[in-house]
């Protein structure tokens, strides 16, 4: 195939421009996090870690990080657990109403988060419950469940039923079969789904802003409340920490899942 044609060069150039567009805001956040000055944005006057130090000393930001990490981990755990069960039902069994139910479970993707946020909050208000950490957790489970379900289902389709049947015919019960056969084969998808759920929960702002309270702030909510004043190097520093965290997690996950899947037949 000829690739040196002028058309191809244009396509490549265009793609590079789109990349620059997509990454400039991200790079700028990372760079400005080291900006020593207090007001204004550019020009930078040297390189300094003072804003990172200030972040590390800020109790409420440490608290927000702790909240986000706990919330993200629990969300990933619950979503993945119930997502695996649902995926097993959809892929391994035939039952009436299957397609409708599958669409129902995937529907949170297509429902605007702002409506989801209002709806759950309104329901809570009707039950006369205060906003709490539990609200954030159940909300995030609903937000992330469809993604976990999609990822696990896609992998489960590719795992032959015969493996499970072989295990059963050798005398394994349903739970043993799952633990010894299905689970190891499914592990890459479980890891990927769990990580995806974690980052969605960790990054979510649209619905979370409805559900969070002053006691249960997550990092994005914290950034949002800091933005009220104006953008500052401190916000950029916080952004930089978050970017590093959320980008490192999937890369690590991808590496792990490739290792696990290579170890299996």
């Amino acid at each position: 195939m000829k690739k040196i044609s002028p058309g191809w060069t244009l396509i490549r150039l265009y793609t590079i421009l789109v990349y620059i567009f997509m990454f400039t805001p991200i790079v700028v956040v990372m760079v400005l996090a080291f900006n020593p000055k207090q007001f204004g944005i550019f020009p930078m006057e040297g390189v300094s870690l003072r804003w990172f130090v200030k972040l590390a000393q800020n109790e409420s930001i440490i608290e927000a990080f702790r909240n986000s990490l706990v919330l993200g981990s629990l969300t990933a755990l619950i979503s993945t657990a119930i997502g695996i069960l649902a995926a097993m039902a959809f892929i391994r069994f035939e039952f009436p109403g299957k397609n409708t139910l599958n669409t129902l479970l995937l529907s949170p993707i297509m429902i605007p988060e702002v409506v989801l946020g209002v709806a759950l909050l309104l329901f809570l208000r009707f039950l006369q419950q205060p906003k709490s950490f539990a609200l954030l957790l159940i909300g995030h489970v609903v937000l992330t469940l469809p993604y976990v379900l999609l990822i696990v289902q896609a992998r489960l389709v590719g795992i032959k039923k015969e493996y499970e049947e072989a295990a059963k015919s050798l005398g394994a019960n349903a739970f043993q079969t799952f633990r010894e056969v299905t689970f190891p084969l499914l592990l890459p998808a479980i890891l990927a789904g769990g990580l995806f759920a974690f980052t969605i929960s960790f990054d979510d702002i649209t619905a979370t802003l409805f559900w969070a309270t002053a006691q249960n702030q997550t990092v994005p909510v914290k950034i949002f409340s800091m933005l009220r004043n104006s953008i500052s190097p401190e916000i950029n520093a916080l952004g930089a920490v978050m970017i590093v965290l959320t980008v490192a997690t999937p890369l690590l996950g991808g590496y792990l899942s490739r290792r696990f899947s290579r170890a299996k037949p």
Binding site: V29, I41, T199, D203, I205, P220, I223, I243, P250
Partner: peptide, 14 residues
């Protein structure tokens, strides 16, 4: 994987 709010607010930097 990068927070929506960070990507949005960074346009102020630019």
């Amino acid at each position: 994987w990068i927070s929506f709010i960070i990507r949005t607010m960074s346009w102020i930097n630019i």
